[in-house]
Design a protein around this nucleic acid. Structure first.
Lengths: 167, 167
DNA sequence: TTAAACTTTCAATAATAATTGAAAGTTTAT
DNA sequence: ATAAACTTTCAATTATTATTGAAAGTTTAA
């Protein structure tokens, strides 16, 4: 397998994996492309490489910036905008986990809390609904806490680094 | 919020959450319905409650059984087949995590390993591709190991319980 | 063996989501 | 102020995925 084959394989695999972290194919592929690029890429570069339209590229780059994993890079003397992605896999994982928690897990926790808090009317069905949604609520919250622990761990790491600089 | 409202809210929320664990809406809703039911449900029951077709119900029940979270229940004297889901949230979480690992994470790890193992031709682009996919491979493998640790923890718990029974 | 009761399959259809491309919008240079 | 270079928006189109429903298949009872 040479460079071009490997690159195509990586980008398309990462793209089809998009569903795992809740984003679409083009979005995941753009991120993958930037992830292995040695320099910032322009919209033109991305369109050409992935063979997708300008509109698609623009919209998905915006979403990636919303997620906080892609940033605009201004290159002096250049009219075009250039883009780069977070290159540290650990940080990438943290951002993705945090965003998924905020966008998808938190709303579910809210509903589970509401549902598990209904008044117990004494029927077996209500008791079961309360019991099971409560169990699900606790589980989901625990899982989410674990994610937040990881995020905060990063926070600590940054804090430590900053403290070292100050000292 | 009364029982019926709460039930509808839970089932539909859990359904829309399906994407988070990689299954479709109907499948997630069927599981949700069984999860809060006090007794096994027939295909008829499910169809009526969720207002979905017989075919859809049949196919999704099968998938849930493939995942190992729903089982057929034979009720003596009854012609119909009845279904129940795993009621323990911890076990449910383990099964889902394990299946997702097997179906989605493992194949990606394989590709990442292949791509990161291409011959270094000395170019900057190739070096970057190798470096970044290697980092991603290590990260993904570590995350997957954590999932397996949880699964094995359950194994240990079962083993312990069995040992207690034997003693 | 037949028929009733039930389940599965799958081609057709419907619903949803992604993508395009061209017009409108913005920024920069002159 | 104008035009060139570039980006964004969004209605229309295309691709993908989910759902239906009726025919075929299976099991059980008599």
């Amino acid at each position: 397998m040479n460079y071009d084959e490997a690159k195509i394989k990586f980008v398309s695999t990462w793209g089809s994996l998009g569903s795992l972290w809740g984003i679409n194919k083009a979005m995941a592929q753009i991120q993958a492309l930037l992830f292995i690029s040695t320099k910032p890429l322009s919209m033109e570069d991305i369109m050409e490489d992935l063979q997708i339209s300008r509109g698609n590229t623009s919209m998905n780059l915006r979403q990636l910036m919303d997620w906080g994993i892609v940033t605009k890079e201004i290159i002096p003397g250049e009219r075009k905008e250039y883009f780069t992605t977070e290159k540290d896999v650990q940080e990438l994982a943290r951002v993705i986990a945090k965003e998924r928690s905020r966008r998808e897990i938190q709303p579910v926790i809210k509903v589970l809390k509401e549902v598990s808090s209904i008044k117990d009317d004494g029927t077996e069905a209500t008791k079961e609904l309360i019991k099971q949604t409560k169990a699900l609520h606790d589980l989901t919250e625990t899982a989410d806490d674990m994610i937040n622990k990881l995020v905060n761990q990063k926070q600590n790491w940054i804090t430590k680094s900053l403290l070292k600089l100050i000292k």
